[in-house]
Design a protein around this nucleic acid. Sequence first.
DNA 1: AGAAGGACCAGTGGTCCGTA
DNA 2: AGAAGGACCAGTGGTCCGTA
Lengths: 213, 213
Amino acid sequence: GDTNTLDALSQEGFSEEPVQQDKEAAGSGGRGTWEAVTAGERKKQPGRKKGHRKVVDLDGDDEHGGAICERQREHPIHFQNIAKERGENAPTKVTNQVFRYAKKAGASYINKPKMRHYVHCYALHCLDEDASNALRRAFKERGENVGAWRQACYKPLVAIASRQGWDIDSIFNAHPRLAIWYVPTKLRQLCYAERNGATASSSVSGTGVHLPF
Amino acid sequence: GDTNTLDALSQEGFSEEPVQQDKEAAGSGGRGTWEAVTAGERKKQPGRKKGHRKVVDLDGDDEHGGAICERQREHPIHFQNIAKERGENAPTKVTNQVFRYAKKAGASYINKPKMRHYVHCYALHCLDEDASNALRRAFKERGENVGAWRQACYKPLVAIASRQGWDIDSIFNAHPRLAIWYVPTKLRQLCYAERNGATASSSVSGTGVHLPF
DNA sequence: AGAAGGACCAGTGGTCCGTA
DNA sequence: AGAAGGACCAGTGGTCCGTA
């Protein structure tokens, strides 16, 4: 059961080029979807330090279709099955329990604060892959840093929400891979502010230079 | 907003013959569904102490169709709307937040441990009203106490679950009034034990005298 | 600049158990 | 016998912030 759970987690993009023992622990040879969004196809960096695995950067190109491994799964979290078979309440989201389980099973590259930091970037990739790629490319070409790109991912998500009645929870839950993630607090707040007509462009914009006048 | 929430709560059967100030606070003149199950139509008891409001007893008859007030509501918890309008995560269940809110709004007869104690009795009423009434009548006629009846409510619920693939969560969530309640731990465990072929009749039975041999 | 993640915190679900 | 409910507890979601 362990490998399947970790497989599911890595599918969701927890890892980017895991070192070999992690790969084996995770039972996955493919690149996760998340990774594909946020990091793209990495250039070979032979001299790279082993212990320092970046999850995210802008430094890649956008062609990675063949590299994405999206194996079919019955459920987004294999954990659900384990819990259900035990007669316990089955989690529908990535909970503390899931993180703890992943860690215990040897997926040392997984941790909660790190993943939460990029959930909205992953959401954009799931909901509009083209927009996600275009945004990353644009920021890269402008020489922006990762933080600016990360910040900019909110805006198109808010636009998507506005087209779908502002129900960001339903939007997340309707997507099979996104449904397991909690809606980030900041994204929820931005949707609320924008719906209520706030001139929130400065807080949503990627660069922070678009003042509301 | 306050009155609607409490209205919804009292509809779900939190109160049985609330004293007048509670009634006003709750904004409800009707009897809740829950109450209808567990207490039936109460006999008049003029000398009854005011401060001592029983939520449950077996001492009533089963004819109460006209007395049940099941007003239509868009959502099981009005709280959901409040939260959603504020851009917050909307609770789908009766959470601590809901209990706190109810208390603050003056529904002093509501508290978490008390309600949790009888959730499964309410569930039986929602899922099979006839069976619920029959069970209560039978226990009353045999002169059983409330505890024995309460215990006996598990068995028919487990039987319902067995007919529906043992998915007690789905059974709860599919019922509009039951969906707001967490599945009680003990009910979940009993379903699990029964599904796995345990001779669990002694723990499920109402009287505790049916030993497994 | 910003990745990685230990660690803390307020508030949760769950229910025990002393009271009346 | 058993109702009512204060109060506690382990584990949650959330994220800050010291480290490298």
